[in-house]
Protein backbone atom coordinates (compact mmCIF):
# COMPACT_ATOMS: atom_id res chain seq x y z
CA UNK A 1 0.00 0.00 0.00
CA UNK A 2 1.06 3.56 -0.73
CA UNK A 3 0.10 6.24 1.76
CA UNK A 4 0.01 9.92 0.84
CA UNK A 5 0.21 12.66 3.45
CA UNK A 6 -2.31 15.25 2.19
CA UNK A 7 -2.86 18.83 3.30
CA UNK A 8 -6.12 20.77 3.33
CA UNK A 9 -6.33 24.50 2.73
CA UNK A 10 -9.67 26.22 3.39
CA UNK A 11 -11.48 22.90 3.17
CA UNK A 12 -9.89 21.88 -0.13
CA UNK A 13 -7.06 19.49 -0.82
CA UNK A 14 -3.94 21.44 -1.69
CA UNK A 15 -2.95 21.13 -5.34
CA UNK A 16 0.56 19.94 -4.47
CA UNK A 17 -1.04 17.17 -2.39
CA UNK A 18 -3.27 16.16 -5.31
CA UNK A 19 -0.13 15.89 -7.44
CA UNK A 20 1.42 13.50 -4.91
CA UNK A 21 -1.83 11.54 -4.68
CA UNK A 22 -2.13 11.24 -8.48
CA UNK A 23 1.46 10.03 -8.70
CA UNK A 24 0.83 7.50 -5.93
CA UNK A 25 -2.17 6.17 -7.85
CA UNK A 26 -0.04 5.76 -10.97
CA UNK A 27 2.77 4.02 -9.05
CA UNK A 28 0.46 1.71 -7.11
CA UNK A 29 -1.09 0.03 -10.14
CA UNK A 30 -3.45 -2.54 -8.64
CA UNK A 31 -2.24 -1.93 -5.11
CA UNK A 32 -4.15 0.28 -2.72
CA UNK A 33 -3.61 3.97 -2.14
CA UNK A 34 -4.51 5.68 1.13
CA UNK A 35 -4.81 9.44 1.57
CA UNK A 36 -3.87 10.53 5.07
CA UNK A 37 -5.17 13.75 6.61
CA UNK A 38 -4.16 15.24 9.94
CA UNK A 39 -5.86 18.23 11.58
CA UNK A 40 -8.48 19.63 13.91
CA UNK A 41 -10.94 19.16 11.05
CA UNK A 42 -10.49 17.04 7.96
CA UNK A 43 -13.60 18.34 6.16
CA UNK A 44 -12.88 18.22 2.45
CA UNK A 45 -10.80 15.04 2.66
CA UNK A 46 -13.53 13.05 0.83
CA UNK A 47 -12.37 14.60 -2.44
CA UNK A 48 -9.28 12.36 -2.32
CA UNK A 49 -11.51 9.57 -3.70
CA UNK A 50 -11.72 11.44 -7.01
CA UNK A 51 -7.94 11.32 -7.33
CA UNK A 52 -7.40 7.65 -6.71
CA UNK A 53 -7.66 7.10 -2.96
CA UNK A 54 -9.09 3.69 -2.05
CA UNK A 55 -8.92 4.68 1.57
CA UNK A 56 -9.17 8.03 3.34
CA UNK A 57 -7.55 8.07 6.76
CA UNK A 58 -8.43 10.95 9.04
CA UNK A 59 -6.55 11.86 12.21
CA UNK A 60 -8.90 14.46 13.62
CA UNK A 61 -8.39 16.01 17.05
CA UNK A 62 -8.40 19.52 18.54
CA UNK A 63 -4.71 19.21 19.45
CA UNK A 64 -3.89 18.73 15.76
CA UNK A 65 -5.23 22.21 14.97
CA UNK A 66 -1.74 23.68 15.35
CA UNK A 67 1.24 22.04 13.69
CA UNK A 68 3.73 20.19 15.84
CA UNK A 69 6.58 18.41 14.03
CA UNK A 70 6.95 15.68 16.61
CA UNK A 71 3.24 15.06 17.24
CA UNK A 72 2.35 14.98 13.53
CA UNK A 73 5.32 12.67 12.89
CA UNK A 74 4.01 10.25 15.50
CA UNK A 75 0.53 10.27 13.95
CA UNK A 76 1.84 9.72 10.41
CA UNK A 77 4.40 7.06 11.38
CA UNK A 78 1.77 5.18 13.38
CA UNK A 79 -0.54 5.18 10.36
CA UNK A 80 2.25 3.84 8.10
CA UNK A 81 2.95 1.03 10.58
CA UNK A 82 -0.71 0.20 11.21
CA UNK A 83 -1.46 -0.07 7.47
CA UNK A 84 1.80 -1.80 6.57
CA UNK A 85 2.47 0.81 3.88
CA UNK A 86 5.72 0.35 1.97
CA UNK A 87 5.74 3.84 0.43
CA UNK A 88 4.81 7.21 1.93
CA UNK A 89 4.58 10.27 -0.30
CA UNK A 90 3.80 13.89 0.48
CA UNK A 91 4.23 17.20 -1.28
CA UNK A 92 7.41 19.16 -0.62
CA UNK A 93 5.45 22.01 0.97
CA UNK A 94 6.78 23.82 4.04
CA UNK A 95 4.93 21.33 6.22
CA UNK A 96 5.87 18.29 4.15
CA UNK A 97 9.54 19.20 4.21
CA UNK A 98 9.41 19.69 7.98
CA UNK A 99 7.47 16.53 8.71
CA UNK A 100 8.58 13.77 6.33
CA UNK A 101 12.28 13.56 7.33
CA UNK A 102 11.18 13.21 10.94
CA UNK A 103 8.77 10.42 9.99
CA UNK A 104 11.58 8.75 8.03
CA UNK A 105 13.87 8.77 11.08
CA UNK A 106 11.07 7.34 13.22
CA UNK A 107 10.55 4.47 10.80
CA UNK A 108 14.18 3.91 9.80
CA UNK A 109 13.02 4.68 6.27
CA UNK A 110 14.99 6.09 3.36
CA UNK A 111 13.95 9.64 2.44
CA UNK A 112 14.36 11.42 -0.87
CA UNK A 113 13.45 15.12 -0.91
CA UNK A 114 11.78 17.13 -3.68
CA UNK A 115 11.70 14.31 -6.20
CA UNK A 116 10.75 15.09 -9.79
CA UNK A 117 10.33 11.49 -10.98
CA UNK A 118 9.32 8.20 -9.36
CA UNK A 119 9.12 4.58 -10.47
CA UNK A 120 8.53 1.21 -8.81
CA UNK A 121 10.78 -1.77 -9.54
CA UNK A 122 9.11 -4.72 -7.86
CA UNK A 123 8.48 -3.32 -4.42
CA UNK A 124 11.46 -0.97 -4.53
CA UNK A 125 11.08 2.71 -5.22
CA UNK A 126 13.43 4.67 -7.44
CA UNK A 127 13.45 8.44 -7.45
CA UNK A 128 14.92 11.17 -9.58
CA UNK A 129 15.74 14.32 -7.68
CA UNK A 130 17.49 17.61 -8.35
CA UNK A 131 20.81 18.14 -6.57
CA UNK A 132 23.26 21.05 -6.55
CA UNK A 133 20.25 23.38 -6.85
CA UNK A 134 19.02 21.55 -9.97
CA UNK A 135 22.36 21.84 -11.74
CA UNK A 136 22.31 18.02 -11.76
CA UNK A 137 19.89 15.16 -11.13
CA UNK A 138 20.49 12.12 -8.94
CA UNK A 139 18.84 8.74 -9.41
CA UNK A 140 18.20 7.34 -5.96
CA UNK A 141 17.51 3.67 -5.17
CA UNK A 142 15.86 2.80 -1.89
CA UNK A 143 16.91 -0.23 0.13
CA UNK A 144 14.77 0.31 3.25
CA UNK A 145 11.52 -1.46 4.01
CA UNK A 146 9.53 1.77 4.18
CA UNK A 147 10.37 4.32 1.49
CA UNK A 148 9.53 8.01 1.77
CA UNK A 149 9.67 10.81 -0.77
CA UNK A 150 8.46 14.39 -0.97
CA UNK A 151 7.30 15.48 -4.43
CA UNK A 152 8.32 18.84 -5.82
CA UNK A 153 5.21 20.97 -6.47
CA UNK A 154 4.17 21.68 -10.08
CA UNK A 155 6.06 18.68 -11.47
CA UNK A 156 3.60 15.78 -11.28
CA UNK A 157 0.26 15.97 -13.09
CA UNK A 158 -3.06 15.99 -11.24
CA UNK A 159 -5.10 13.12 -12.70
CA UNK A 160 -8.67 12.31 -11.82
CA UNK A 161 -9.36 8.64 -11.11
CA UNK A 162 -12.42 7.71 -9.08
CA UNK A 163 -11.99 5.15 -6.33
CA UNK A 164 -14.05 4.08 -3.34
CA UNK A 165 -12.37 6.41 -0.87
CA UNK A 166 -13.60 4.56 2.21
CA UNK A 167 -13.19 6.90 5.16
CA UNK A 168 -11.64 5.68 8.40
CA UNK A 169 -10.88 7.61 11.55
CA UNK A 170 -7.48 7.13 13.14
CA UNK A 171 -7.17 6.95 16.92
CA UNK A 172 -6.75 10.39 18.52
CA UNK A 173 -3.20 11.04 19.66
CA UNK A 174 -2.30 12.02 23.20
CA UNK A 175 -1.63 15.74 23.48
CA UNK A 176 2.03 15.16 24.12
CA UNK A 177 4.43 17.24 22.08
CA UNK A 178 7.81 18.89 22.40
CA UNK A 179 7.25 21.88 20.11
CA UNK A 180 4.26 23.48 18.42
CA UNK A 181 3.39 26.44 16.19
CA UNK A 182 2.06 29.06 18.62
CA UNK A 183 1.08 31.80 16.22
CA UNK A 184 1.54 33.04 12.69
CA UNK A 185 3.06 36.50 12.29
CA UNK A 186 3.22 38.63 9.17
CA UNK A 187 0.64 36.66 7.25
CA UNK A 188 1.31 36.74 3.55
CA UNK A 189 -2.37 37.57 2.96
CA UNK A 190 -3.25 34.28 1.29
CA UNK A 191 -0.61 34.80 -1.38
CA UNK A 192 0.50 31.59 -2.95
CA UNK A 193 3.96 30.33 -2.08
CA UNK A 194 6.43 30.72 -4.94
CA UNK A 195 7.25 27.02 -5.00
CA UNK A 196 3.62 26.21 -5.78
CA UNK A 197 2.83 29.11 -8.13
CA UNK A 198 2.07 28.29 -11.75
CA UNK A 199 3.03 31.72 -12.99
CA UNK A 200 5.89 33.78 -11.56
CA UNK A 201 6.88 37.32 -12.53
CA UNK A 202 10.36 38.02 -11.18
CA UNK A 203 12.44 41.17 -10.94
CA UNK A 204 16.17 41.68 -10.69
CA UNK A 205 18.70 44.46 -10.42
CA UNK A 206 17.16 46.07 -13.50
CA UNK A 207 14.11 47.03 -11.43
CA UNK A 208 16.25 49.88 -10.02
CA UNK A 209 14.26 50.25 -6.78
CA UNK A 210 11.83 48.38 -4.60
CA UNK A 211 8.84 50.59 -5.44
CA UNK A 212 9.11 49.56 -9.09
CA UNK A 213 8.10 46.02 -8.12
CA UNK A 214 4.55 47.39 -8.23
CA UNK A 215 4.80 47.06 -12.02
CA UNK A 216 5.43 43.34 -11.57
CA UNK A 217 2.60 43.05 -9.04
CA UNK A 218 0.26 44.60 -11.61
CA UNK A 219 1.35 42.16 -14.33
CA UNK A 220 1.18 39.21 -11.93
CA UNK A 221 -2.34 40.20 -10.95
CA UNK A 222 -3.39 40.49 -14.59
CA UNK A 223 -2.14 37.02 -15.52
CA UNK A 224 -2.74 35.26 -12.20
CA UNK A 225 0.84 35.00 -10.99
CA UNK A 226 3.04 35.61 -7.98
CA UNK A 227 6.01 37.99 -7.79
CA UNK A 228 9.55 36.78 -7.14
CA UNK A 229 12.98 38.39 -7.12
CA UNK A 230 16.60 37.62 -7.85
CA UNK A 231 19.25 37.63 -5.16
CA UNK A 232 20.61 40.91 -6.54
CA UNK A 233 17.22 42.55 -5.91
CA UNK A 234 16.89 41.07 -2.42
CA UNK A 235 20.44 42.06 -1.46
CA UNK A 236 20.06 45.59 -2.86
CA UNK A 237 18.35 46.82 0.30
CA UNK A 238 15.10 47.69 -1.47
CA UNK A 239 13.01 46.02 1.19
CA UNK A 240 12.35 42.90 -0.87
CA UNK A 241 12.04 40.04 1.64
CA UNK A 242 14.18 36.92 1.32
CA UNK A 243 11.11 34.68 1.04
CA UNK A 244 10.59 36.20 -2.43
CA UNK A 245 14.05 35.17 -3.59
CA UNK A 246 14.32 32.65 -6.39
CA UNK A 247 17.68 30.95 -6.76
CA UNK A 248 20.25 28.71 -5.24
CA UNK A 249 20.10 30.37 -1.83
CA UNK A 250 16.40 31.14 -2.14
CA UNK A 251 13.53 29.13 -3.53
CA UNK A 252 13.82 26.60 -6.31
CA UNK A 253 10.70 26.93 -8.43
CA UNK A 254 9.15 25.07 -11.34
CA UNK A 255 6.17 27.09 -12.62
CA UNK A 256 4.57 26.69 -16.03
CA UNK A 257 5.52 30.27 -16.87
CA UNK A 258 8.43 32.29 -15.51
CA UNK A 259 8.83 35.91 -16.61
CA UNK A 260 12.27 37.32 -15.72
CA UNK A 261 12.36 41.12 -15.77
CA UNK A 262 15.67 42.92 -15.52
CA UNK A 263 17.40 39.71 -14.45
CA UNK A 264 20.77 39.01 -16.06
CA UNK A 265 20.70 35.26 -15.46
CA UNK A 266 23.52 34.65 -12.98
CA UNK A 267 24.17 30.96 -12.29
CA UNK A 268 22.83 31.50 -8.77
CA UNK A 269 19.45 32.61 -10.13
CA UNK A 270 19.27 30.16 -13.01
CA UNK A 271 19.73 27.26 -10.58
CA UNK A 272 16.47 28.27 -8.95
CA UNK A 273 14.27 28.61 -12.04
CA UNK A 274 15.67 26.53 -14.89
CA UNK A 275 13.03 23.89 -14.19
CA UNK A 276 10.28 26.28 -15.38
CA UNK A 277 8.29 25.03 -18.35
CA UNK A 278 8.31 28.27 -20.32
CA UNK A 279 10.73 31.11 -19.61
CA UNK A 280 10.34 34.69 -20.81
CA UNK A 281 13.20 37.16 -20.45
CA UNK A 282 12.82 40.93 -20.62
CA UNK A 283 16.16 42.71 -20.48
CA UNK A 284 17.71 45.70 -22.20
CA UNK A 285 21.07 43.94 -22.57
CA UNK A 286 20.87 41.63 -25.61
CA UNK A 287 23.93 39.75 -24.32
CA UNK A 288 22.37 38.92 -20.95
CA UNK A 289 22.85 35.17 -20.26
CA UNK A 290 19.16 34.82 -19.35
CA UNK A 291 18.34 34.93 -23.10
CA UNK A 292 20.17 31.62 -23.59
CA UNK A 293 17.57 30.02 -21.37
CA UNK A 294 14.46 31.88 -22.45
CA UNK A 295 11.88 30.42 -24.81
CA UNK A 296 10.86 33.98 -25.62
CA UNK A 297 13.11 36.99 -25.26
CA UNK A 298 12.33 40.68 -25.39
CA UNK A 299 15.31 42.98 -25.71
CA UNK A 300 13.90 46.20 -24.40
CA UNK A 301 13.22 48.49 -21.50
CA UNK A 302 11.17 46.62 -18.92
CA UNK A 303 9.65 49.91 -17.76
CA UNK A 304 7.98 50.15 -21.17
CA UNK A 305 7.40 46.47 -21.92
CA UNK A 306 5.93 45.35 -18.58
CA UNK A 307 3.13 47.96 -18.47
CA UNK A 308 2.31 47.13 -22.11
CA UNK A 309 2.08 43.45 -21.17
CA UNK A 310 -0.23 44.25 -18.27
CA UNK A 311 -2.40 46.42 -20.50
CA UNK A 312 -2.58 43.81 -23.26
CA UNK A 313 -3.28 40.98 -20.80
CA UNK A 314 -6.15 42.96 -19.28
CA UNK A 315 -7.52 43.76 -22.74
CA UNK A 316 -7.41 40.10 -23.71
CA UNK A 317 -8.94 39.09 -20.40
CA UNK A 318 -6.17 36.56 -19.80
CA UNK A 319 -6.17 35.01 -16.36
CA UNK A 320 -4.57 31.76 -15.56
Amino acid sequence: MILVFCELQNGKIRKASLEALSEARRLAGEARVGALFVGASCAGAEDAAKFGADLILKAEAPVLGAYSSDLFATVVADAVKARGASVLLGAATPMGKDLLPRVAAKLGAGYAAEVTGLSMHGNKLQALRPVYAAKAFATVDFSSEVQIASTRPNVFAVTECSKAGTAEALPAPTADFKAIVKEILAKSGGKQDLTEAEVIVSGGRGMKEGANFQLLEDLAEAIGGVVGASRAAVDAGWGIPHNMQVGQTGKVVSPTLYIACGISGAIQHVAGMSGSKVIVAINKDPEAPIFKLANYGIVGDLFEVVPELTKAAKALGITK
Binding site: A134, F137, V140, G297, V299, G300
Partner: peptide, 28 residues
Protein backbone atom coordinates in the same frame (compact mmCIF):
# COMPACT_ATOMS: atom_id res chain seq x y z
CA UNK B 1 22.30 3.03 4.18
CA UNK B 2 18.59 3.27 3.43
CA UNK B 3 19.20 4.55 -0.07
CA UNK B 4 22.03 4.99 -2.56
CA UNK B 5 22.65 7.30 -5.49
CA UNK B 6 22.98 5.10 -8.57
CA UNK B 7 23.42 7.83 -11.19
CA UNK B 8 24.17 11.53 -11.46
CA UNK B 9 23.19 13.25 -14.68
CA UNK B 10 23.15 16.79 -16.00
CA UNK B 11 19.83 18.35 -16.98
CA UNK B 12 19.12 18.67 -20.70
CA UNK B 13 20.17 22.06 -22.07
CA UNK B 14 17.29 24.27 -23.11
CA UNK B 15 17.11 25.08 -26.80
CA UNK B 16 17.75 28.74 -27.52
CA UNK B 17 14.51 30.61 -27.82
CA UNK B 18 13.23 33.34 -30.03
CA UNK B 19 13.58 37.10 -29.66
CA UNK B 20 10.57 39.27 -30.38
CA UNK B 21 10.85 42.39 -32.54
CA UNK B 22 9.06 45.71 -32.68
CA UNK B 23 8.31 48.43 -30.15
CA UNK B 24 7.22 47.66 -26.61
CA UNK B 25 3.52 47.42 -27.49
CA UNK B 26 4.18 45.12 -30.46
CA UNK B 27 6.51 42.93 -28.41
CA UNK B 28 3.98 42.72 -25.60
Amino acid sequence: ATLTVSALTLPPTRPEGRKLDGDAAAQA
